[in-house]
């Protein structure tokens, strides 16, 4: 027995010295002190010995067990310290990135826009995605059969009255009908159209709508708001072009183009050689729209604008396929 104990002590010492890894220490523990470990087995074998022998070897073996446990513990501590002190000593080693979450690019753009408008005293408006023709078309000055309905192919839930909203302007008519002026509101939201899905078109897409109704609002206020907004998004050197453009829900209507930032108006592939890129549609809220929403157009006037967000998001993040943008095929690196 003495011989055996001596052998274990020597072997353990050799094993311990050759272990330089915390994980290997665990294996060492199992080898000697696990249920079927060498030291444990020897301890168990005491049961078969005479009482005298038990008295003789018992305390020694228990001592050995304790000392081995302590040795492993100490070695573990020293290895950990070694590791830490090495890291502490070399401050040139960069750290490891912990998990970082990200917002969807469309949310990021919406927040950027909201930041500007909230600062200008705007609220954020919301409305249903399943919409009544009344709010989506009629109160926007689009009577049944009007040729301009061709500008938007609708996805119907129940023809002819219930559809998926084709534009965030439906939230405008709802807000105008539900609240009293003055109001300044922006509406980011999902819209739907009956279009075949392609690289750039999807049956659902995002729009950003804004409107202001108060006494004495004119088209100059609209021009100024949109100018500031684009300067906020793109910098002070942004060049905008304001021109007449028809939209059924506004009169006078206004189209807004931004000078191409790649060619500075000279014409290139990006702007399809136009020098300008169309950015949004806008205008003074139509007399009939205000009236339909129970706001007296002789007392109040207002402006409205709307833009598609997806193209903006895609160009900002270099995404070429809208299906990837909303199909989960974007990774956050």
């Amino acid at each position: 027995m003495n011989k055996q104990i001596k052998q274990i002590i020597t072997n353990f010492q050799t094993d311990l010295e050759s272990t330089n890894d915390i994980a290997d220490l665990d294996s060492l523990f199992l080898k000697y002190l696990g249920k079927k470990g060498i030291t444990s087995e020897l301890l168990k074998s005491l049961q078969g010995l005479a009482l005298q022998d038990k008295k003789m070897y018992g305390p020694t073996l228990n001592e050995l067990k304790k000392s081995q446990e302590q040795s492993i513990k100490d070695k573990k501590l020293s290895l950990e310290n070694e590791e830490n002190s090495a890291l502490e000593q070399d401050l040139t080693i960069p750290g490891h990135i912990k998990n970082i979450g990200h917002l969807h690019p469309t949310t990021t753009i919406i927040r950027e826009m909201n930041e500007f408008f909230l600062r200008q005293g705007f609220s954020i408006g919301e409305g249903p995605e399943i919409e009544d023709v009344e709010y989506n078309f009629r109160r926007l000055n689009l009577p049944e059969g009007h040729p301009a309905t061709d500008l938007q192919d609708s996805l119907f839930i129940e023809e002819p009255n219930l559809l998926l909203r084709t534009q965030t302007s439906s939230v405008e008519t709802r807000t105008l009908s539900d609240f009293k002026p003055p109001m300044r509101v922006v509406v980011p939201g999902k819209c739907y159209r009956n279009e075949t899905t392609s690289l750039t078109n999807s049956a659902f897409f995002y729009q950003y709508q804004g409107f202001v109704v108060d006494k004495g609002i004119n088209i100059g206020h609209l021009k100024d708001t949109l100018t500031q907004f684009h300067q906020f998004l793109f910098g002070d050197d942004v060049v905008l072009r304001f021109r007449y453009k028809y939209y059924p829900e506004v009169s006078p209507g206004m189209g807004v183009d931004m000078q191409c930032r790649f060619c500075h108006g000279q014409g290139c592939k990006v702007c399809k050689f136009r020098g300008f890129v169309e950015v949004l549609g806008s205008g003074m809220i139509h007399y009939n729209t205000l009236k339909a929403c129970n706001i007296d157009p002789e007392v109040y006037s207002g402006f409205a604008f709307g833009l598609g967000l997806d193209r903006l998001v895609m160009s900002k993040y270099g995404i070429t396929d809208i299906r990837k943008l909303y199909g989960g095929e974007i990774a956050y690196l």
Binding site: G121, R184, V212, G216, G220, Y244
Partner: peptide
């Protein structure tokens, strides 16, 4: 339209009507 002058919004800021859920 180029000749239309720019005017900053100067009326008092209306009440915030942003829904709490947003």
């Amino acid at each position: 339209y180029t000749n239309i002058p720019l005017y900053p919004l100067s009326t008092p800021v209306p009440k915030d009507i942003t829904p709490a859920i947003y």
